[in-house]
Design a protein around this nucleic acid. Structure first.
Lengths: 257, 257
DNA sequence: CTCATATGTCTCTATAATAGAACCGTAATT
DNA sequence: AATTACGGTTCTATTATAGAGACATATGAG
């Protein structure tokens, strides 16, 4: 059904991440338990096309400038900076915490836009960061509004633990999602990282399918008290309403399977 | 030597550009003169891996969020925004024109950072834009400082014309590059686009090989007079000197074949 | 309604590309 | 001098792919 060679090659690409930005041929081959000849051919082909470059001294490979091009095209397509980012910045200023927009992509949430808090201690994450849907406020908010069968798929697929707070039990997760869906927002502490709190609300496309979430996050010692939480939810929902209005107007062009 | 399947697949990916951001299976197959079965398998495989997404209504494919991730990683690696971008912004403010940084990548120049002019009419281009080395001030500046054999390769490979001003004659180009190399800067009008002027100076790695250029560009009606040009060159070279100092300090990690 | 022409997806098999072991030259380390 | 690592190359049995064709579906025309 799919092309095995291409599939394998893209799998190889995925080993180039923030933690391991450069790989030697044999080094990567060992990591993947594949013959180094194969890895060599894959890396060389990517390099020929500018998707990877090889350091002429160390002979190691890293991501090439071609990705700048494609990344920018995706960014332009989303076109969030003109209207959505200002709303997020206002929110970040009002709440004094970082605000970010997370997009649904398969079984992950992807951070597509960020408005950072002006405070020196703040939650900070890169654009393009990918997180499984069962972890953290931004992702669980999205997951809670997915069709039941897709929730089932995710919990059945096995939920990896990131911190002690990560929910990994299927029934516990489904109950949690049920609650999130009913109240319309999700508040978490320490799920994604042990020192971080998050508060998320969902965003929908024109067919009322969830496509994204808007989230506030900050260090756990600044987390809102139980009395303050409703106010924060209110402010966040007001921001989300504005973004939702924009989405509705320009009926968004990003999908999920 | 290289993997044909992967090579072809990456070639397919290159058809997704700003002008044609979405493709149907048969539409793209026709464009590339390839069987639609092949294109279908390639697109489906990319989609499986999140590199493309398919609009469930139109069934057409477009770039997926995976590229946000990779694009951001390349950007982080270049790490220009902390030190180099401020210098560029100062320059742009002083000269009142857009300033951009172009990186050498194979036989192309790639725009990696931009400081836009505050004027309403300004030269504007996206990050990641790719231009053949023989076109425009930013690229010719780089080409002029390449080893002679690489210049030869490029001129012999045939130089595509973008505007009537584009130099396509090999001897004329080599003479032009010789002049640029001697004076240390390159001034062009109407080569990249008929209504644009550009002024570029080169940047080098620790081995004194050219790796990038710093360029000013604006609408042609604001181009500097012959008397004003030396002053503009001075200001640009001063900015380039600061960036060069930064490069030398943090010996840069991007290469070329 | 019927016909014609699109579309994405799937199946089949001859054929061509790939996998993977073994090898080479080089460079660093012992 | 010997060993061990590295990136890159060669070879051929094996396997995945190319490409034609078919299918279901959608669209538009007459």
């Amino acid at each position: 059904m799919t092309l095995k060679t291409l599939d394998n090659s893209l799998e190889v690409l995925k080993y180039f991440n923030k933690e391991n930005p450069t790989w030697g041929v044999r080094e990567l081959a060992k990591e993947m338990n594949i013959s180094h000849s194969i890895i060599y051919r894959i890396l060389a082909t990517f390099e020929n096309q500018g998707f990877l470059i090889q350091n002429p001294e160390t002979k190691k490979y890293e991501l090439g400038l071609r990705f700048l091009e494609y990344g920018q095209m995706v960014k332009d397509k989303l076109n969030l900076s003109d209207f959505v980012l200002p709303i997020m910045k206002n929110l970040a200023e009002a709440i004094k915490e970082s605000v970010f927009l997370t997009w649904l992509d398969g079984t992950d949430g992807v951070t597509v836009e960020i408005a950072e808090s002006s405070q020196t201690i703040k939650f900070s994450v890169s654009i393009g960061t990918r997180t499984p849907l069962h972890i953290g406020a931004s992702c669980k908010t999205i997951m809670a509004f997915l069709p039941e069968e897709r929730k089932k798929e995710i919990v059945d697929h096995g939920m990896k633990r990131l911190t002690p707070e990560t929910i990994t039990d299927p029934d516990e997760m489904l109950a949690d999602l049920e609650k999130i869906q009913q109240q319309g927002w999700c508040f978490t502490t320490g799920e994604y990282s042990h020192s971080v709190f998050g508060l998320g609300v969902p965003l929908f496309n024109s067919k009322r399918e969830v496509i994204a979430s808007l989230t506030i996050a900050g260090p756990i010692y600044r987390k809102p008290t139980e009395e303050k939480l409703p106010e924060m939810v209110n402010v966040l929902q007001y921001g989300a309403m504005n973004i939702q209005r924009y989405f509705d107007q320009y009926s968004f062009k990003l999908y999920h399977d």
